[in-house]
Amino acid sequence: MKTAGEAALSRDAEYLEFAANRTGHLFRSACLLTGGDTHLAEDLVQETLGRMYAVWRRSGRFFGSRRIDNPAGYAQGVLYRAFITQRRRRSASERPTGELPDRPGPEADSTLRLTLLQALARLSPRDRAVLVLRYWEDVSVEETAGILRCSSGAVRTQTSRALARLRALLGDELADLVDR
């Protein structure tokens, strides 16, 4: 039987393995959610990993031995909900600007990516979350509803509206850029 210290070390090792496997994807999702703001994305990922670490370190003896069957899915849900909560909090102190700020893009010659990121940054947090879940994560409507804690119908409606807004922002740019 493991001692408490050995169990803690084992849980730390499990957490690090999970973080090593999932940090990349979480960070990329966060970058899309934040419209390419890598600072905010890092903040979101650390918040998500922090909650995962806290769950991992729970001792069965004192807090119950609830196990998470799908840690990757759990972290995904944490990330998206944390994003929406964070943006809700920030919106009280931030004022929208007329022009899009220059965002640090992933690479210098990434016109296509910057176009998408700048358009995403102009959508509401919930619109962004729905689009990133559906078109980046390839998550079903039902799973999206579970993550965002709303009905499937709401997800369908929101997806449709968010797509229309994005299309309006991008105009024909997307097709042109993809064709290059």
């Binding site: 990349g24 922090g50 990516r113």
Partner: peptide, 19 residues
């Protein structure tokens, strides 16, 4: 777009552990 972002895995994992 997503795949063009490259995270600092170690720093983020440790930052998560601290939080």
């Amino acid at each position: 777009t997503g795949e063009a972002f490259h995270p600092d895995h170690e720093r983020l994992a440790l930052g998560g552990a601290v939080r």
